[in-house]
Nucleic acid binder design. Sequence first.
DNA 1: GTTCCGCATGAATCGATAG
DNA 2: ACTATCGATTCATGCGGAA
Lengths: 287, 287
Amino acid sequence: MIEIKTEIFLGDSKDILKDIGENSIDLIVTSPPYADRRKNTYGGIKPEKYVEWFLPISKQLLRVLKPTGTFILNIKEKAEDGERHTYVIELILELRKQGWLWTEEFIWHKKNCYPGKWPNRFRDAWERCLQFNKTKKFDMYQEEVMVPIGDWANGRLKNLSETDKIRDNSRNGSGFGKNISNWLNRKEVYPTNVLNFATVCNNKNHSAAFPEELPEWFIRLFTKEFDWVLDPFAGSGTTLTVAKKMKRNSIGIEILPEYVDMVRETIQENQFFLFETKEKYGQSKSF
Amino acid sequence: MIEIKTEIFLGDSKDILKDIGENSIDLIVTSPPYADRRKNTYGGIKPEKYVEWFLPISKQLLRVLKPTGTFILNIKEKAEDGERHTYVIELILELRKQGWLWTEEFIWHKKNCYPGKWPNRFRDAWERCLQFNKTKKFDMYQEEVMVPIGDWANGRLKNLSETDKIRDNSRNGSGFGKNISNWLNRKEVYPTNVLNFATVCNNKNHSAAFPEELPEWFIRLFTKEFDWVLDPFAGSGTTLTVAKKMKRNSIGIEILPEYVDMVRETIQENQFFLFETKEKYGQSKSF
DNA sequence: GTTCCGCATGAATCGATAG
DNA sequence: ACTATCGATTCATGCGGAA
């Protein structure tokens, strides 16, 4: 049996990344601290300084990624003084200048988004998952994230609430009703570039940037077993935990010691559950 | 009874717009020809030339819009040679330089997007609806687009405990307490910035850029009756048709004569249905 | 085992007030 | 004038205990 390696390093990604060999990582999936967010833990990066702060890190990411690898960047710009900030779209342009290909933009649709009411805007229910690549020939295992149509038809349609049916507003039969017959003789369908995951809001000790489903989906899509996954902003270690459960090697970098300690404990714990949870992560594809 | 005016002009928006008075339009909602798309109808604008082509038009749009008005731009960059084009995000940056405020980015989630399969990407199921404003004090009628409350309310709001009825602002200063009693008689909640509209799949020879629900939603949100709505790329006239049904005055501009003829016929037709459809568009709010 | 119910909490944003 | 802090507003979900 081949051992799965899961490592977490304490320090600044800009520095630590230099110790990782070039062309060695299959997938980078991360959610960096957003501008002016998490001030109490990360100090908060000023929006005007965000691109400048990120580029040295992404330069290293470009170096360590395999030519067939993928970089997924989960990020969302804040609204301030009535406007959306532009640092994220400026970052896209700068990353391309750095040599990255901007392959795709996935939308993470958060149904249970933050509450609140303002006179000039509604609640923000989505985030960007930007896909960047080093070359046009990257690995993509589309079949791994297919949605079983049986489950979709039975589960999704059955679970669809009455309000969902009203909200989704499938007028003149162009929604579920009309097209369902097309899927009767198929077993699975490919997903789209809009992903639905609920945010995590547990009453436990810490908060995670994204739910486990998010890195799980991208790991399944862009890696196979024993590949290497990197999260340069590991935080509470969601990416590493999921990678380990899915039998991928992983490396995390985190600047806050308390998070690093926590991740190390989590990794230890998971070893006991590795075999119990294998089935869940290996076969469910429950999207 | 006040008459509703619906006008369609034949010509290039860059020129025709100069005949419209400044500060006279309450809402601009449009879906311009996408770069390199609809070559057979519009001649196709090269992606590299897109921003340059659009800016003279948006300059006029800025002039004709009221200070309290809103500009909704429905657009999506195409994928070419394995990459997403950057002309849309470059356009956002240039529009800000022109004086526009980039207030928000709505996501139009197309649940029944076009089928297809590619080795390097999934089906594209979303488009941007970019909101721009002239000032920070724009009109917004949020109550007009409220949606039914989620099912969670059914089971949970029946019996409120005493602690539910008092505000509880304690705990880690996260800011949010609860006052569930606010929702006791609540049947509707505010929507988010993710919109679900099914695409129209008609096999006519003209390209309907968006379904009626899309302009209807923004017209309801940003205008009241007898306000003025403008679509500088009217196409088959969806915006005008909806505006008329909703008792808003409207102006359309379209460069192709056959579209203009078609729109004029449609407008005539709708006059017979004005009173029949009033109820549907005035009261349904079926989102 | 299920289902139901109480409860905590979340990458938020604006406007007013204070330094 | 410009920045920092504080108060107000709000909806969906998972967890855990009870029925």
